[in-house]
Design a protein around this nucleic acid. Structure first.
Lengths: 110, 110
DNA sequence: GTGGAGGTTCGACAATTTTCGAACCAATCG
DNA sequence: CGATTGGTTCGAAAATTGTCGAACCTCCAC
């Protein structure tokens, strides 16, 4: 019956700044967001997290990003696995100018 | 001899994005930063935190902000108590465009 | 169907963060 | 000199986060 893993996402107009900043305050989570800048990716293809971390941990990382509204995580329409999308427009609409400086900054982070 | 409560501050060129974002991911801490936008303030005059919170707690809040490099906390040159300053230029130099959207956003935060 | 591969959830435990009282410190005012 | 004001530091206890194995689910491929 019900298409199962349809995970909950916060609506675009109720994103919380605290949650977004918190989610992006972690390098690993930020790296994923940065991976999605050029477009959606299959979860399995996310570098740096593809790394040597147990899948339950990876799943938790994605959960924080999803629940904060930073990414969307949905079943891959055409293909297997899940598709991750940066919710750039939603974030930009609610917190104009916020997302780019954050993702740009990592390029020169120590 | 040494003027005592000279608290340590991270140098401008070594601010960590993770630490800055984390510090600003908390509404109370963000509110203080916002209070300092128009210029330095005596610590005792910080609204919202002047609120009903024990001083040790308030001091801890300031510590997180200071150690992340968001604010400077120094003895008040002319006057009693301490002077808080937003390290706007330092943050801007290291993470261009980051600070304003964050502080602006609170105006419309739920 | 059976067997992965890909992924979520749950529970437990470790690690970090928060909160707050108590002790302490420095400067100012009587 | 006290005493008061404004503030930091230190524990310790509470709350939140992070990590990871085990169990489970689901879509393919065979």
């Amino acid at each position: 019956m019900s298409t199962p893993p349809e995970l909950p996402h916060p609506p675009a107009d109720s994103l919380s700044l605290s949650q977004v900043l918190f989610a992006l305050s972690d390098p690993a989570r930020r790296e994923i967001a940065r991976n999605l800048r050029e477009g959606p990716l299959e979860a399995a293809a996310c570098s740096a997290v593809t790394a040597d971390v147990p899948k339950s941990t990876k799943s938790h990382i994605l959960k924080v990003l999803r629940e904060s509204g930073v990414i969307r995580n949905e079943p891959n329409p055409n293909g297997r696995g899940r598709l991750l999308t940066l919710r750039r427009d939603d974030i930009e609409a609610r917190f104009p100018g916020l997302i780019d400086p954050i993702l740009d900054a990592d390029l020169r982070e120590s």
